[in-house]
Write a protein that binds this DNA or RNA. Structure first.
Lengths: 249, 249
DNA sequence: ACCTGAACACCGTTCAAGT
DNA sequence: ACCTGAACACCGTTCAAGT
């Protein structure tokens, strides 16, 4: 990730689309070793990433999952970076595209864009970790971005404001979801729920130098974390949308 | 990162603070090999991370920079994770704390919190990449968080809204800055400015399948990127603050 | 055309040993 | 108390070789 060719903008698989190699789906659904294929490899990568998480995922682990030598993968993908970029676009393909136009409100549209993005990333926590390392211009990502553009432009906002609105919604959603995923992963490592972890951390932080002696009160929320999270996520979206609206007069 | 002890919540150096080992600053400013110290190591780590970036930083590289064997570092820090967590708190120490109370507006306070956080992270791009992997409860981080709490509570918002407001500001700022850093890093890899990169990508994306044939117009902004970024960053903060304000009546 | 084996240049970290 | 050397269990990727 981000450790790529040091020169031009070949920064993406999608900009130098070598054709997928391997048997071109002759007799579909054959299975078993030997039936390698770029799509098969990428699909297996997504599943293994879901299983192991990004830090434990490796080319070697993927190869052994597919019952081949690590190096055989390199017949189909240029390197690990390219494979991950392909995997990201598979994930992007899972995002439900919100409707646009006539009946639907642009504010509902923007919210729906945020909601589907978050849901998809929560389903593949590794994806949000590497998301920023790639351009995300695969067919599925592009489809999503195009719809996002349409929705933003269907609003009464100026072109500049519409673009800023899209960025704002997206960057907030990115930050929120990344934080969310990190807590979930920390909780999983501690073999507990996010609530347990928050409880423990809150206790511990209370006794920290600089906290105990200052006047700050550190309270843990009295509400289950996932409910609070849901509410807070939408509350900030409300705030953003209200703010956007307000500029219209 | 995130590859830690699989059991309890010893998830942070700060929760199990082994005393820093090494000569306790006898005759300060001695320099040269042999004058190892936890602080010296962490400071060197920050500098090397600034220089190399996170992906190229390694315990071995740090050791060779300090003219010692890799393993000598492990006398002072438990592992790489702990070292990075310590480095992150050094960075947190660079954040300017906004004033709170009487004279100053809570909205200006929240904005200042976002601005200083972003500025600090832009100065140490590696920091934002690993930020989410740690609890960030070192003394400097805690000082910042405490001030953030004070500012939020100085607002007329309800306790719940004040907490949600803080999250919203922070998560938006995190998302915005992370995106910003990623673009800057991609530009650096391509040996060009962010503007050049955006230009090239925009051109390339235009010709992509699914873009060319659809009706979407992909235009590049007519304004230098850093200006646009500054404006957009603050515009979304405006929107959030307007939204928060609006709930008060 | 597709896959393998050996090898290279890396990692973080262990352990026992040196001073 | 502090530092080292050798070794282990990993990485991604090269290259030449097999079929």
């Amino acid at each position: 990730m981000a450790t790529k060719r040091a020169s031009q903008v070949k920064q993406s698989v999608w900009l130098t689309p070598r054709p997928a190699r391997g048997r071109r789906s002759s007799r579909a659904g054959e299975g078993g070793p030997g039936s390698l294929d770029r799509e098969v490899i990428v699909a297996a990568a997504v599943r293994l990433l879901d299983e192991l998480g990004e830090p434990k995922f490796s080319m070697r682990a993927l190869a052994s999952r597919l019952d081949v030598t690590p190096m055989s993968l390199y017949w189909y993908v240029a390197d690990k970076d390219d494979l991950l970029e392909l995997a990201l676009d598979v994930v992007a393909g899972e995002m439900a595209l919100p409707e646009v136009g006539d009946g639907t409100d642009w504010q509902d549209g923007l919210r729906a864009l945020a909601v589907t993005w978050r849901a998809t990333m929560l389903a593949h926590p590794w994806a949000i970790r590497i998301y920023g390392d790639y351009l995300n211009i695969g067919p599925n990502s592009v489809r999503y971005s195009a719809r996002a553009l349409e929705i933003a432009r269907s609003s009464p906002l100026s072109e500049a404001d519409a673009m800023a609105a899209l960025s704002a919604i997206f960057q907030y959603t990115y930050g929120f979801t990344a934080t969310e995923v990190n807590w979930a992963e920390k909780a999983a490592e501690a073999n507990g729920s996010t609530d347990d972890l928050i409880e423990e951390i809150t206790e511990a932080v209370r006794d920290l130098p600089g906290v105990a002696d200052s006047g700050i009160i550190v309270e843990r929320p009295r509400e289950p974390d996932h409910l609070l999270r849901e509410r807070d996520f939408h509350r900030a979206l409300d705030w953003l949308l209200i703010g956007m609206q307000s500029g219209l007069r």
